[in-house]
Design a protein around this nucleic acid. Structure first.
Length: 186
DNA sequence: TGCCCGATTAACT
DNA sequence: GTTAATCGGGCAA
């Protein structure tokens, strides 16, 4: 078990290759982004609120929020407890329950099942009701599974996507060889 | 109380 | 390449 109580920037790349399991489906994490407490692009930047409350809770919890009034995004709370660090899961590649994922997504194409933060939430059936779940507990409806074999796939870093602040921080990490990235790394 | 805008996606041209 | 869809948080008044 890796130590989640480290800065998001350190934990984020370590989360690549992990599996995220939900009801009826599971995927392998191939793309993430790090968000730090002193990061203007982070929800935790302005301190605790009703929405970001779980970000300030213990590491290993699931932080779910609504974006653009339409899509959900899933984050893993990390860092020192109560500081407000998190790692956004941006893309997964299907490992199990692909038909269930395709069903929830309403599409067929395997590479479109989890190639985006909103997409993977939909594919895994993650909702606001899952906010605050303990991702390290195998009994949780949504939980993480550490890879048994260390990932040897090359990892790339690049600027984060879709933010307007702190755009210069290269805190997006991904497995280059994956065909399930939300976007290519340049 | 009201207004603006976003860690996105899919359907357009 | 462009844009609509859609809603809760954060900030101003």
């Amino acid at each position: 078990m890796i130590d989640l109580c480290r800065p998001a920037v350190e934990v984020a790349p370590d989360l690549l290759g992990w599996q995220i399991a939900a009801v009826g489906a599971a995927g392998r994490i191939v793309e993430v982004e790090a968000y730090e407490p002193d990061d203007p692009a982070s929800h935790s930047f302005r301190g605790p609120t009703k929405r970001n409350d779980v970000m300030f809770g213990p590491p290993g919890r699931l932080y779910v929020y609504l974006i653009y009034g339409i899509h959900l995004c899933a984050n893993v709370v990390v860092g020192s407890p109560g500081r407000g660090s998190a790692v956004l899961i941006r893309a997964i590649e299907p490992v199990a329950g692909e038909s269930v994922m395709a069903d929830r997504r309403g599409i067929e194409r395997p590479t479109s099942l989890g190639s985006g933060p909103g997409k993977l939430c939909q594919a895994l059936g993650i909702t606001m009701a899952h906010n605050g779940l303990d991702l390290l507990n195998a009994n949780s409806a949504v939980h993480l599974i550490e890879p048994t074999v260390a990932t040897s796939s090359p990892i790339v870093a690049g600027p984060r996507i879709g933010i307007t602040k702190a755009t210069d921080r290269p805190w997006r990490f991904g497995l280059v060889e994956s065909k399930h990235l939300s976007r290519r790394f340049v």
